[in-house]
Amino acid sequence: MQRTWSLSGPLDWMRYINKYVEVKAGTSEEREHCGWLLTVDPVSASLVLVNFGEVGRASVRVVMGHVVEKVEVLQEGDQEMVDRLQAILIQTQSSDLDPEQLQLRKDTVQLWLQKNLIPVEEEGAELKVAGVLTISAPYRPEDCRSCNQIILDRIQRLIRIKPEY
C-alpha cells in the first residue's frame, strides 16, 4: 500500500487536496491522522494536514511519505475551506495595495535594480531579471521566483536593502 501512495504521482495527489482526509501511517498506536489536506510534497510524498482550532489558530501535521499506507477522503471541501487553507500559507499577502501604489513599487524596484546594473525588463505586471528570475506583485523579496538559488538569493538581498522612499 505504501508504495502506491508515494508512487501515485502529482495528478492523483491533486484529487485529495483541500479535502478532509484520514491517513493511516506508521506502526505505533497513533496510526490514524485526520485533517484537511493542504498539500503533498511531490519529492517525498509527505502530506501536510491542517486542523483548525479556536479563532486564528491551526495545528499542522506533516506525515512523512515513506510511512503512509492509506489515504481516504472523509469529507469534501467547500470554497470557504479552500480559501481558509490558502490563507494559512499566505498570511501577509498584501493585495490591498491599489494599482497606483503597485505601479510605484514596481517602478522603484525596477529603478533600484537598474541602478545596481542588473538587467531588468517589464513583462506585463511582472519584472523579469536577466531572463531567469521573475518578480511578481507586490514586488517584495518573497515575491521573487527563480530556479537559480544563487541569483534568487542575490536579488532578494538587493531588494531587501532597497532604500524606502
Binding site: G26, T39, D41, L89, Q91
Partner: peptide, 27 residues
C-alpha cells in the same frame, strides 16, 4: 503533471517556511 507538481511543491515549501523557528514535535 508538472503544473500540479509545482503547485504542490510551492505549498510544501511555504509550509516549511512557516515551520522555521517554531517548536515542532517529532513522532
Amino acid at each position: 503533471e508538472q503544473h500540479a507538481r509545482s503547485v504542490l511543491r510551492e505549498r510544501f515549501l511555504r509550509c516549511l517556511l512557516a515551520m522555521a523557528n517554531k517548536k515542532v514535535h517529532f513522532h
